[in-house]
Amino acid sequence: MRHLLSIADLSKIEAISILDTANELARVSDGAVKKLPTLRGRTIVNLFAEDSTRTRISFEAAAKRLSADVINFSAKGSSVSKGESLKDTAMTLQAMGADAVVIRHSASGAAQRLADSQWMSGSVVNAGDGTHEHPSQALLDAFTIRKHLGLGKSDLEGLSVAIVGDVLHSRVARSNVLLLAKLGAKVTLVAPPTLLPVGVESWPASVSYDFDSVIPFVDVVMMLRVQQERMTEMYFPNAREYSRYFGLNSDRMKSMKPGAIVMHPGPMNRGLEISAEVADSSRSVITEQVTNGVSVRMAILYVLLTGGSLEAGGN
């Protein structure tokens, strides 16, 4: 595996081995060892052409725990914001000897463009491209679900997950649908019809417009962020109505199955798609998602930067 661009490129076995690797890395770094020499001497560039502090620091922490040199190249103050083309940026990174580029970009497909071009030779990690995918987020979500509800199994067979909200514009939803289905979970998308893409029928997920009819039957409720600009684009009448039908509040939470968990990729709009009581409740694993993000991203960097495919067995 050379790049991580889309969950579609991962086999089930590869996905599970990333989760297993993350698991071991979490144990190592939860223990006494804070820093591993694994990627010593390798250079990882965080190319963030779109603001995302949380994803960037998560990747940065992951790279640093593996002793890689990290260069941050973010939109503000860099040439990316001055209209430099992706090509020129890539050629600069190549000249700097980047072994891997972690790219966040507002254009769907930007990571793939970088990987497919001859502009640079390093590995490319998609840290969110437009409304396309966010594979590391899906992997950390699957990791978190498996930890809580996996019953020691390697996949998510038998589990039900509802993904609720702005599916149309969500790269988190796209990656999660692909990954959770690949791992055997049953996925239901819950959204107003305006926030589902035309063509969603071809996704490995079912669709519902009625949150209340779905919520009692799922093991995981994954809430998606509603961007402020959707309000002005007439996807729904107003925030209050959205909240009433698709928000997760304590009343709705009461109808959840015992043991079911609440997730959110962040940043949250408290009071819109999720109420403060729910976000801070014992069902919420939202802060744990952040913690797990570092281990999962360590695993991704480890797998990509040590070349070849993952083989089983020690020695």
Binding site: G130, T131, H132, P197, G199, E201, S202, W203
Partner: peptide, 12 residues
């Protein structure tokens, strides 16, 4: 706008 745009996250 269709299955491919839905998958690719490109506006239809």
């Amino acid at each position: 706008e269709g299955e491919v745009s839905a998958r690719l996250g490109l506006k239809g």
